[in-house]
Simulated assay, not measured.
Amino acid sequence: MASAFSDIQPDEYVPSEQHPQHGVIIGGPAARAKRIEYGILLSTMVLGSLGALYWTLTHATGWVEWSAFLFGFALINMGVGIGYHRYFTHRAFEAGPKMRLAIGIMAQMACQASVLKWAADHRRHHAFADGVGDVHSPYIDGHGKKMGKLKGLGIAHFGWLFDNTTSDMKVYGKGLIDDPQVLWCHKHRWSIAIFSSIVLPALWALAFGGPEHIIGTILIGGFFRNFFFLNFVMGVNSIGHVFGSQRFETKDGSRNNWFMAWMTFGDGWHNNHHQHPRAASSKIAWWEFDLNGQIIYAWEKMGLVWNVQRAPAYIRNDKGEWVLKKAKVAMAGIAEPEVMSADDGGILFPAKDRQPHIEPAE
């Protein structure tokens, strides 16, 4: 019997070459489907963005087009950070079926593949962060080969979308492959992408401007909005593992980057996140902006979500080091980086089995 995700990972495929890490598939229909899907999504964003540039230079644009851009940017920012990332990947909170469906649709409006695919890949990233098996490390490729800094940044940013490795849904899709809301979103991912990129901007233009604003709003508030935001999401994978500060020794290259944090509503506090991946907010210091985390806390107060996971409180000691505020918590071992577990919907990856951070090849 075919699985509900057989369109991206056929049951009958047996790879001729085995990857060193469990749950990573080399080649086959899944790799081809991945390249085709990401190729369509990325090329339409790029072409649409070039169209937006041309339209901006040759036509008058105003608040209709750019308000659609800003509204859509905020919407998909929440969708990716809260939906794809904190909920479906890490289970930072719990939600009912209607809320799960709403979050899933909002996430897929970013046009970055289905919830199923995105979350499975990101779970694999955390399982082997900057080690053999990582999906998008700037230090090694999908097969574990070391890369130079420039090539590594390119692979981690966009190149990984087109390699021949995929994440085994039966390993990294646990808790997702049998979720009706996730499977509905996966089945309708192209319809949601078309609605987000074309239909919603067109309706926005008609509601706040007129027919003459439709093309410009679709190009600017649809395709360019998606591509602009995509670069910051990918930037967390690339720049966020090379440039920035490290508050915690997580044995990978994750960094806290304030610019990426502002542009992704909090996901740029990436070192904080790798220390406590299940936390609903990546904010540790008072000045670290995490809008997505605040939205989750607001939803919790409204009763829309519950069982919200929180990172322990940290303070600076006399040496300027960040230490756990409560000694009892520190004794429980929470100061050690958290790893993927059954609670994340994946399988257990003990810290001893994780690959250390690899410096780039010269």
Rank of each mutant, 00 (worst) to 15 (best):
M1A: 13
S3V: 12
S3A: 12
D7M: 02
D7Q: 09
I8M: 15
P10D: 06
V14S: 06
Q18I: 15
Q21G: 10
G23H: 04
I25T: 04
G27C: 12
P29M: 07
P29A: 14
R32A: 14
I36D: 01
E37R: 09
L47G: 05
G48K: 07
S49Y: 03
A52E: 01
T56Y: 08
L57Y: 06
L57P: 01
W66F: 09
W66L: 08
A68L: 05
F73I: 00
A74S: 11
R91I: 11
F93L: 13
P97G: 02
K98R: 15
A102W: 05
I103Q: 02
G104R: 01
I105K: 01
Q108D: 07
C111R: 00
S114N: 02
V115N: 14
V115A: 08
L116K: 07
F128H: 13
F128N: 09
G131D: 07
G131W: 06
V132I: 14
M147N: 03
G148Y: 12
L150I: 14
G154F: 13
G159V: 09
W160S: 07
L161G: 06
D163Q: 11
N164Y: 10
N164M: 13
T166M: 05
S167C: 13
M169W: 01
M169I: 09
K170C: 08
K170L: 04
K174T: 15
G175R: 12
D178L: 03
D178T: 15
D179V: 08
D179C: 09
D179P: 05
C185M: 07
F195P: 00
I198G: 02
P201G: 10
W204E: 02
L206F: 15
A207G: 07
A207P: 05
A207Q: 11
I215N: 02
G216M: 11
T217A: 10
I218M: 11
L219A: 02
I220D: 01
G221N: 05
G222L: 02
R225A: 00
R225T: 03
R225E: 00
F229N: 06
M234K: 02
S238F: 14
G240K: 05
T250H: 05
K251S: 05
G253H: 04
R255H: 13
A261Q: 08
M263A: 13
T264R: 04
G268Y: 10
G268C: 15
N272G: 06
H274D: 06
A279S: 15
S281D: 06
W286Y: 10
E288R: 04
I296H: 08
Y297F: 10
A298I: 13
P312H: 10
N317L: 14
D318C: 06
E321Q: 09
L324T: 09
K325H: 06
G333K: 15
G333V: 12
E338F: 15
M340Q: 06
D344S: 14
G345M: 05
G345K: 09
G346P: 01
K352P: 01
R354S: 02
I358F: 03
